[in-house]
Write a protein that binds this DNA or RNA. Structure first.
Lengths: 162, 162
DNA sequence: GGCCATTTAGTTGTGCACAACTTAATTGTG
DNA sequence: CACAATTAAGTTGTGCACAACTAAATGGCC
């Protein structure tokens, strides 16, 4: 209302808007992280560790590589993270017999059992935010489009600005 | 389309949905970060450093405390970050004369001059994503509502689950 | 004035993200 | 078979986020 988006915005306007959108996404990500941090403390998991466990609960045991593809994380992030999960007794790492390069991440009984306690997490989050299924779906779609556009942009930047 | 959100979703459905929204926001944040990383490399700034500079360009020099309020970051994050900006010659830190506890972050000439080169950043980002002003504003509003809800939830969690 | 709670920065320790690199296993090719 | 290229995981180094803490300055209160 107060700030009408004129078609011909100045550079300064763009910079201000940039601050806003940058900040919004950054803040949203950290706020999200913060709420999960509280809820996940009971489970002894960090937010990224929870993401890994979600994938394992859904997909069964996977090599680190596949885990990374699901989460778009590389071994530099996953190796120590999975090692911490192993330290907590939630997963075990096993060298694949067929391909000795590959390490399969397998849920322990304890790790599999943790899923039961995790089932309440989404409801606690949803309840906390007051967002419904529709709104969550809508936001997700919005974010996925953004990510898709940004990924394509990243590729383009990498190619054109070598 | 394929996955119709039934009104009475099971715990497992919620967990799956949770994975999706968690992942979407996490991925969007990192994708955003990645595109900025490329664009900001020319300026010698990281993404959080860019956020600090945006605030300083917009607000003028500020004490660390105020900077933290604008960005929702505490001294644990800002102190070393600002020190790195000082190392790069973009800002200077000055103890306030009136209140010796306070440290004022002031742009150097070099830091102020960097704004000129930063003016092209938002356009490069916007062009890369293909998002228009409206869509950016819409997403921003969506994210801000989410952050607001999450912040309120964090407070509530902190109080109720002490 | 003396004392205590508050406020502002900064420090320390843990964990994540990512670039750049190393190591070891595998694959492809002559 | 030998050897180069590729692939998977791990390591190292830098920077950010945040909790918990310390140190110093300030303000309020008796």
């Amino acid at each position: 209302m107060t700030a009408s988006p004129t078609p011909a915005a100045s550079d300064a306007d763009w910079l201000r808007l940039d601050r806003q959108i940058c900040f919004s996404l950054h803040a949203a990500s950290r706020a999200f992280n913060g709420v999960y941090r509280v809820v996940l403390k009971d489970l002894g998991l960090t937010y990224p560790q929870y993401l890994v466990m979600l994938v394992l609960w859904e997909q069964g045991d996977l090599p680190v590589k596949k885990l990374g593809e699901h989460l778009r994380l590389d071994s530099g992030t996953l190796s120590p993270l999975v090692k911490r999960l192993e330290g907590a007794g939630l997963v075990r790492r096993e060298r694949s017999a067929e391909d000795e390069r590959s390490v399969r991440v397998r849920l322990t009984d304890q790790g599999a059992a943790l899923r039961e306690r995790a089932l309440e997490v989404p409801r606690r989050i949803a309840a906390a935010t007051g967002f419904g299924l529709e709104e969550i779906g809508e936001l997700r779609e919005h974010l996925d489009r953004l990510t898709g556009a940004l990924d394509a942009a990243a590729l383009h930047e990498a190619q054109s600005c070598g």
